[in-house]
Structure formats: structure tokens, C-alpha cells
């Protein structure tokens, strides 16, 4: 890993109304690191996907259960980890939302979008939950 410029930690209750706050902090930090408009959108999209999944799928919106979000601003890019305390899931076995029988479903596209938009995605199944780490590279095309 490269040099860490700044770190932030968020511990939020599992309530959907937290999502805007998380996005706004993450995008502010990413902007101060030098990410441009287009990359900021990618980052906002992906962090809201993961935090929504933790709130809705892992914790069934039980506000008592927290979601832990770590934001690492590094000189080579932004690293964010989203950690939940749910049952976990196999990220490589999520059904393909582009298959003909799922194409018109109104859900099921979040993980695909995150994997496509981020430069690196690491999913770890823990004894008591799930940790998903994403990385967006800071370079000429993302500035």
C-alpha cells in the first residue's frame, strides 16, 4: 500500500436514511484527494451500493446493528472498506443480472456495478460478517 494521507471512520446504525451522509463524507474526501467529477460519481455509486447492501441484506434494517466504514485517502487513490455483522455471502456466486431470465428484475445489479467501476474489489467472509474493500486509483483519467 502507498502512503496514507488521511483516514476517517464511520460507525452508522443500519438505517437507510444514513446513506446520504456517508456519500457526502466520502465524496468530500475523494474530491479533496483530487478525484474529478466522473470518478466522484463512480465512488458515490459504489459506496452507496455497499452500505445499502450492509443495511438491507446483512442487517435487515435493524438500526441496533452498526455498519463500520473505513475511508483511507492514499497518495495513489481511495480505499474504502464496508464491514457488516450479517450472515455474509459468496460474492463470486451472485446470480448474473444480465442473464435473459434476470434482465428485467428490479434488483441484483449492485455487485456487478461495483466490480466494474472500481479498480480493485476484495471481499472477505469473516466469522461474524462480511468485509468488502474497494479501491479507486487516482490517475490522469480519474482526476
Amino acid at each position: 500500500m502507498n502512503r496514507i494521507v488521511r483516514t476517517e471512520h464511520l460507525n452508522i446504525p443500519s438505517s437507510i436514511d444514513q446513506i446520504e451522509k456517508v456519500d457526502s463524507l466520502v465524496e468530500t474526501l475523494a474530491a479533496s484527494l483530487g478525484f474529478g467529477h466522473d470518478a466522484l460519481a463512480d465512488i458515490g455509486i459504489c459506496v452507496t451500493e455497499l452500505v445499502m447492501n450492509a443495511i438491507v441484506h446483512a442487517h435487515k434494517e435493524d438500526a441496533e446493528i452498526p455498519v463500520d466504514i473505513d475511508i483511507l485517502c492514499c497518495d495513489d487513490g481511495l480505499r474504502i472498506s464496508v464491514r457488516d455483522y450479517g450472515p455474509g455471502f459468496e460474492t463470486n456466486h451472485v446470480p448474473d443480472p444480465t442473464s435473459p431470465e434476470r434482465l428485467f428484475d428490479d434488483h441484483g445489479r449492485g455487485i456487478l456495478i461495483v466490480k466494474t467501476m472500481m479498480d480493485d474489489v476484495k471481499c472477505t467472509r469473516l466469522d461474524d460478517g462480511m468485509k468488502i474493500e474497494i479501491f479507486k486509483k487516482l490517475n490522469e483519467s480519474s482526476k
Partner: peptide, 9 residues
């Protein structure tokens, strides 16, 4: 400004 998979849904 942007939408995530919820918007696509």
C-alpha cells in the same frame, strides 16, 4: 447527477 443500481431498478 448519478444513480446507482437502485436507480437502474
Amino acid at each position: 447527477e448519478w444513480m446507482n443500481s437502485s436507480g437502474i431498478g
